[in-house]
């Protein structure tokens, strides 16, 4: 099995770069998307992030603004 066909890795940014993104774009213009499970979200999440568990992501993408940069964790 060879995987190149399926996966184009997304750009990774670290926490500092993510914070710079917020500074550059303005807090309202960056979406933080939490794709973990609700329990994990409740235990701790990045403030103002939007929770959509991975299993629901395909059905709920409409909740997000595609024009804003999205930081996924």
């Amino acid at each position: 099995m060879l995987w190149k066909q399926f996966f184009t890795p997304v750009t990774s940014i670290d926490a500092n770069q993510a914070k710079k993104l917020v500074l550059d774009e303005g807090a309202d213009n960056v979406t933080f998307l939490d794709v973990r499970q609700p329990k994990e979200y409740m235990a701790g999440h990045i403030p103002a992030s939007h929770l959509i568990p991975m299993g629901e992501l395909d059905k709920r993408l409409g909740e997000l603004d595609p024009n804003k940069p999205v930081v996924v964790y």
């Binding site: 997304v10 750009t11 990774s12 670290d14 939490d34 940069p69 930081v71 964790y73």
Partner: peptide, 9 residues
């Protein structure tokens, strides 16, 4: 514009 937050939370 999609970024993966390396190291996550």
């Amino acid at each position: 514009r999609i970024y993966n937050l390396s190291g996550g939370i």
